Amino acid sequence: MERSNNSKSKLPHYVSSKIHPSNDPETDHNSYSLEKFRLYETRQRFYLVGSDRNKQLFRVLKIDRSEPSDLNISEDPVVYSPQEIKNLLQRIAEGNRATGGLNFVVKAYGIAGCIKFLESYYLILVTKRRQIGFICGHAIYGIDESQLITIPHVSVQTDVAHSKTELRASMVFMATKVKILVLMNKVALKLLTLYKKLLSSVDLTKDFFFSYTYPIMQSLQKNVTSMGEDGMPYDNMFVWNAYLTRAIRSRCGNTIWTIALVHGNFKQIRLSIFGRDFSVSLVSRRSRHFAGTRYVLV
């Protein structure tokens, strides 16, 4: 059971109130979480701008779009203020004016994963969320909508039917080769459609939940005793998208861009007994390694 006036002082630092810093210039920029994101695009790159809950601190993740089959991600080490991030986006727009400028793509609330189908990489973004409860003052969210974003620009996506190698082929075999390549393209498109359909069959809007600041994949007792740990424990067996987020986490060296999804159910009710308010939370979690559901009463 969780009392409404429960103190956070006994919780590890990665779930403390420091995760949402103030405007204090001495704030430790490594002790916050990114909760709100805006995705922008140019011909060469995606720019994912993340901010803390109060929109006072901003970070930038750059995703290269010039490679059809490689994932090149770089994290800008600078922590920007609201005015600084506005100026940065203006400079990017001016620098890319000749190739279409900087365009807004979508508003998001975190990266659920990055997946590769056949050749190209795709970004899985949570575009709508809903708050479903609190634990120790930390918000727990469910997913309302998600979106699959193709990373490579359309101009660099491979079209083998028009590759330079084939154009240099002899005219004798050209017709036959073109027919084979067209057939291969059709098969690849069917496979790509099948893979996307299989991914979309996993409905992230049902039975998935997450928190930016509280490791919901662990028990309350574990969180109280796990002092000194940094970042979300993605190696936990209850983190459903550990593999999908591994590429981004390994390249950035942190977990602030991704959200750790738990597959199961979260139910919370508030009660009052003799004038004292408290909440009861029932959390069920499914392991990504073993069948069956694990329940936790908080």
Rank of each mutant, 00 (worst) to 15 (best):
C114I: 12
L181W: 04
E119D: 05
Q157G: 03
I149P: 05
T193A: 15
T176Y: 11
G133C: 01
K116V: 10
T158I: 14
Q131K: 13
L189R: 15
T176A: 08
S146L: 05
H153L: 05
G142Y: 08
A169F: 11
T165F: 15
S163R: 02
Q131A: 05
Q147D: 12
Q131Y: 01
M184A: 14
D159G: 06
L167Y: 09
K179G: 01
T150W: 03
K177E: 13
T158W: 02
E119W: 05
F209M: 01
V182W: 11
L204K: 03
Y214W: 01
K177S: 09
V187S: 12
T127I: 00
K177Y: 10
T176K: 14
F209W: 02
G142M: 11
S200C: 14
H162Y: 09
Y122M: 09
L148E: 15
V154S: 11
V202Y: 02
L189A: 15
I132S: 04
S170P: 00
L183E: 06
D159E: 14
Q157N: 03
Y195W: 08
I115S: 07
V187W: 01
L189W: 12
K164I: 07
P152N: 09
Q131V: 05
R168V: 07
F210N: 04
A169R: 10
F173T: 10
D203P: 00
K116R: 13
P215I: 10
I180D: 01
L183W: 01
Y141V: 05
L199D: 12
D207T: 00
E119H: 08
